[in-house]
């Protein structure tokens, strides 16, 4: 691509794949073995109804807590990505503020049951109806659709790891101070992702499908921000006093 920097060697790509995959597995919140043991148990009807009967603000707070838990694992993932901690602190913050929730949505496909259209949440597998009390059915449907479509690609753990790093290291985020540094890191990550896909004999279209997912992720995250501001307009005190501080810092 006419890039002046020296080409990345195969060995360097293998090394990058190894580091990012290891970082992913060390910080993935739910190991595959744990997921298998859970035997995909879903909520019983009365449990579903108890979520549906929760006051809107209580369900919002519960979801904010769960999102924040997942985001903390993503922060740990970022810290272990080769080169991320070499970026200036401003850019580390910019990338995580913009990309942590996107990586949470990517990781969601690891805990998603496509047959039953259900995601692991609060101890069991929950369908979209569990989230009715939030008052965001359109966004919830889109999030479930995204998880289902990402699941259909059947990405391996190292492919997921590389795609997560690729999403996080987006050089087009606003407020970046050292854009070129991030661009170099993202290009290397993309080469590593291509390398893994080739090594795993994936058909050609997968990389393009993954690129299209990036735009969907952006839309999901901006819709989340819109829903939050609409919610906060009605319940400002709840957000201020009951929402996790990190969540307010990132999305407030």
């Amino acid at each position: 691509n006419g890039d002046a920097s020296p080409p990345v060697s195969m060995a360097e790509l293998d090394h990058l794949v190894q580091i990012i995959s290891k970082s992913h597995l060390e910080t993935c919140q739910y190991l595959r073995e744990e997921l298998q043991q859970m035997s995909w148990q879903s909520f019983l009807q009365d449990e579903v109804e108890s979520y549906q009967n929760k006051p809107r603000e209580a369900m919002w707070q519960l979801c904010a807590v769960k999102i924040t838990e997942a985001i903390q694992y993503v922060v740990e993932f970022a810290k272990r990505i080769d080169g991320f901690m070499d970026l200036c602190q401003n850019d580390q913050i910019v990338l995580l503020k913009a990309g942590s929730l996107e990586v949470v949505f990517v990781r969601m496909c690891r805990v998603f049951d496509s047959q039953n259209n259900a995601v692991y949440f609060d101890g069991k597998f929950a369908g979209p109806d569990v989230f009715r009390a939030l008052g965001c059915d359109d966004l919830i449907t889109s999030v479930f659709d995204f998880a289902k479509s990402l699941c259909s690609l059947h990405l391996t753990e190292d492919e997921l790891a590389l795609f997560s790093a690729f999403v996080l290291l987006s050089a087009d985020r606003s407020w970046l101070q050292e854009k070129l540094q991030v661009e170099k890191l993202q290009q290397k990550t993309q080469l590593a992702l291509q390398h893994v896909l080739q090594k795993n004999h994936r058909e050609d279209g997968v990389l393009n499908k993954l690129r299209c997912k990036v735009a969907v992720l952006r839309s999901l995250c901006s819709r989340h921000t819109e829903k939050l501001s609409a919610f906060r307009a009605v319940y400002p005190d709840i957000v201020r006093t009951h929402f996790p501080p990190l969540y307010k810092e990132l999305f407030g």
Partner: peptide, 17 residues
């Protein structure tokens, strides 16, 4: 930006457990 993101900044400072 660091001022407005003290928690995130602190998480980044913590050693990778």
């Amino acid at each position: 930006l660091k001022e407005k993101h003290k928690i995130l900044h602190q998480l980044l400072q913590n050693s990778t457990s």
